[in-house]
Write a protein that binds this DNA or RNA. Structure first.
Lengths: 73, 73
DNA sequence: ATGTGACTTTAAGTCCGTG
DNA sequence: TCACGGACTTAAAGTCACA
């Protein structure tokens, strides 16, 4: 898993925060108002998420959008 | 102009950094490998930019992606 | 040098399912 | 509970002419 692209790094960050909250992908999907398969894809780094969904995910995770980009560049 | 949505805030941040570099939208577009009018749309907050283009823009501006989200939630 | 509406092509995002 | 696929629908990507 080459995690050196923005989609993978974003997905890994989402997964890490979600697991730290102790919730499932389905629960996060519900909190975001997004589809469960979409969250799965995002965490695996296969989706090119756009701004409004980044905001929804950040809100659902209780962080600010920039926290989802807090990986070593 | 509700600047309290993520597209507008992202666009404003891009514009601020671009202007601090003293370059035009056309020059930024060239550095990004994106279209001039697309950059214009982004800065005005009318485009729902996705991860890969966020990465291109950050690279062109010489910042990390999270710097483009450095606004108060 | 930039804003904007219109447009076509591509990919985002949904929803059905399976092991 | 999640990865993954197929088949969709909607929206983003990308381009243009003109103000």
């Amino acid at each position: 898993m080459a995690a050196n692209n923005i989609k993978s790094m974003f997905g890994n960050t989402v997964r890490t925060i979600r697991l730290s909250m102790g919730i499932s992908q389905e629960e996060l999907a519900f909190l975001c108002g997004l589809h469960r398969t979409y969250i799965s894809d995002i965490e695996r780094g296969t989706r090119n998420v756009s701004l409004e969904n980044i905001a929804k995910i950040a809100r659902a995770l209780g962080v600010s959008p920039k926290d989802l980009f807090d990986f070593p560049n």
